[in-house]
Nucleic acid binder design. Structure first.
Length: 552
DNA sequence: TCTGCTAACACATTTGAAAAGG
DNA sequence: ACCTTTTCAAATGTGTTAGCAG
């Protein structure tokens, strides 16, 4: 952690003292009564007296369908990840207010590890099963409407429902890559577009909002039957699995039987439930109790109750990004009873430790700064689908669990776009921000990690998808703070320029129209990235020594 | 044997183009 | 000719399941 802190300081070296002094690090969970009644969770930054009323830290974000999220969260949200990519459900939707109606903003989401553990579903509970796998490339999902004016964002719900999760490390579609059986925390970033409708320059202000009820464990198949039932009950696409009250009639219908059939998963779940339930209450006679439990649907929740605060911030210290390579993508895209073993070391609940929101906010490092250290340009964006930015950059030597340094870190939360490489040892080379279809070879030259899809690989235009890998996303944004919701913001640091003299690393021409349907593309502009070609994927490799997730 | 992953499957919803109507 | 509404097929999203692999 000390190394991590040092690196942050190095990163901040390019930032003026004035900038540092103006850093807005404190954020506040703000759940308004009326919003609570609406089932909305809001997160807003503490307003800065020196900032205009509609400055970025005043933006309020309300999580849509918060009650539904809480339902899942109380049971232990699981999100299916597949090779082809799977949507999240509940989908991430927010209501944004207090934006400057005329200012243009870019909304994006990233999903960062919530801790450095690998989990397994044991005894109907999520338990730590070991150390986490190396983090996947930290991709960002940029809302397809970005950039858009505050009036646009506030007009209606902002939906990220088309965000997809995958476990394919070589995913060519720009989906967010996750490891199965790991816990993750989605985060929303609101970035103020600069004068060029871009962000990435030093003077880019942004804020980050985290709703802890959106945390989830990624799985390739559902582990907790309660989650399955919640999904079936609430997801329209799963209506086909809604049977009668028993919920199994469809299964029997599919199998041409006249009686309900208990699926394997349900049997597993019920056995697990009965095992734990009876073991706890009866201590014996498990077999005798099975039939009763099978019919009574008594399940134990795998996640701790809300009050137990499984997303405790102090439990979320974990190494940051692990892979040195940085990738930019942008291309168009059409869019068991076996768990009864008792070898679990400690429960998922136990991995959390007590912590306060105050602690979280005060100790929050500047993990956003590097997220924004890579260029984004929405020029030419014309896709209804989102752009995704990802990073495979990693940090070696950064350890998990060093909470003290984190808590004691002074104003390192300088939320401005880095104008120099986040870390001296990293450098962007071999700029490959070229239309994928036209510069395949060139891009491939610089990107040995992610395969370069040809146009033939791209499904028909169900969605135009841009993928951007943001350096340091994993590294600097990985520590999740478990308040009911939280946010952190930054002020604008005016007058800054990137190394190439451009006002920003990512930019969009001011005249670029805002359309409902957009195509995303990116192109290099002397070290900056912009988006132009709807059928492209861009990759940039950071020149950095390989790093590994270490415990140091 | 245990555990996790994948592909195929059936069903429901969404999407978008074509047809119909005003 | 233009616009709106309706229709319908294809695409997409979903959980389940059997089988495979380490």
């Amino acid at each position: 952690m000390r190394l991590w802190h040092k690196m942050l300081q190095e990163k901040a070296s390019a930032v003026t003292d004035e900038c540092m002094s103006r850093v807005q690090t404190s954020v506040e969970t703000d759940l308004l009564p009326d919003q609570s009644q609406q089932g909305l969770s809001s997160a807003s930054a503490i307003p800065s007296s020196s900032e205009p009323e509609q400055s970025i830290e005043n933006i309020k974000v309300i999580l849509h369908e918060r009650e539904l999220w809480k339902k899942f969260h109380e049971v232990g949200t699981e999100m299916i990840i597949t090779k082809a990519g799977r949507r999240m459900f509940p989908s991430y939707k927010v209501k944004v207010t207090r934006m400057n109606p005329k200012t243009k903003y870019i909304l994006l989401i990233d999903i960062v590890p919530a801790d450095d553990h690998r989990y397994k579903f044991c005894d109907n509970k999520w338990m730590v099963a070991g150390k986490a796998e190396p983090a996947m490339p930290g991709r960002l999902y940029v809302h397809p409407d970005s950039p858009a004016t505050g009036a646009h964002w506030m007009r209606q719900l902002v939906s990220f429902q088309k965000l997809k999760l995958t476990n394919n490390h070589l995913d060519p579609f720009g989906h967010i890559i996750l490891n199965s059986m790991h816990k993750y925390q989605p985060r929303l970033h609101i970035v103020k577009a600069d004068e060029n409708n871009a962000f990435g320059s030093k003077n880019t202000a942004y804020c980050t909002h985290v709703f802890h009820e959106t945390a989830f464990i990624s799985v390739t198949s559902y582990q907790n039957h309660k989650i399955t039932q919640l999904k079936i009950e609430n997801n329209p696409f799963a209506k086909g699995f809604r049977g009668s009250e028993e919920g199994d009639l469809r299964v029997s219908r599919l199998q041409g039987k006249e009686f309900p059939v208990i699926s394997k998963n349900m049997v597993r779940q019920r056995l697990i439930s009965s095992h734990s339930h009876l073991a706890g209450r009866l201590g014996a006679g498990v077999l005798a109790g099975h039939s009763q439990v099978l019919s009574s649907y008594q399940y134990e929740t795998g996640f701790p109750l809300p009050n137990s605060d499984p997303q405790d911030p102090t439990s979320n210290q974990f190494p940051q990004s692990r892979d040195p390579s940085l990738l930019y993508h942008c291309f168009k895209h059409r869019d068991n009873g076996r768990h009864l073993e008792l070898g679990c070391k400690r429960s998922y609940l136990e991995t959390s430790s007590a912590g306060t929101e105050e602690h979280y906010f005060r100790s929050a490092p500047s993990y956003e700064s590097s997220l924004l250290s890579h260029p984004y340009c929405a020029e030419g964006i014309s896709s209804r689908e989102a752009c995704m930015y990802g990073s495979m950059e990693t940090e070696s030597g950064a350890g998990a669990g060093d909470t003290d340094d984190m808590a004691n870190s002074p104003s390192i939360n300088c939320n401005v776009w880095a104008t120099v490489p986040p870390y001296p040892r990293y450098s962007v080379e071999g700029i490959a921000y070229q239309p994928f279809t036209a510069h395949f070879t060139s891009a491939a030259t610089h990107s040995p990690v992610v395969p370069h899809p040809t146009t033939s690989m791209v499904p028909r235009s169900q969605g135009d998808l841009g993928v951007y890998n943001s350096a340091s996303v994993q590294r600097d944004l990985s520590v999740i703070h478990p308040s009911s919701s939280s946010s952190s913001c930054s002020p604008v640091v005016p007058g800054s320029r990137d190394r190439s003299g451009h006002p920003s690393l990512y930019h969009k021409k001011p005249e670029s129209p805002l359309r409902p349907h957009r195509d995303f593309s990116a192109y290099p502009t002397q070290g900056s990235i912009s988006i132009r070609d709807p059928l492209c994927q861009y990759q940039v490799e950071l020149n950095s020594a390989g790093s590994h997730w270490t415990d140091s």
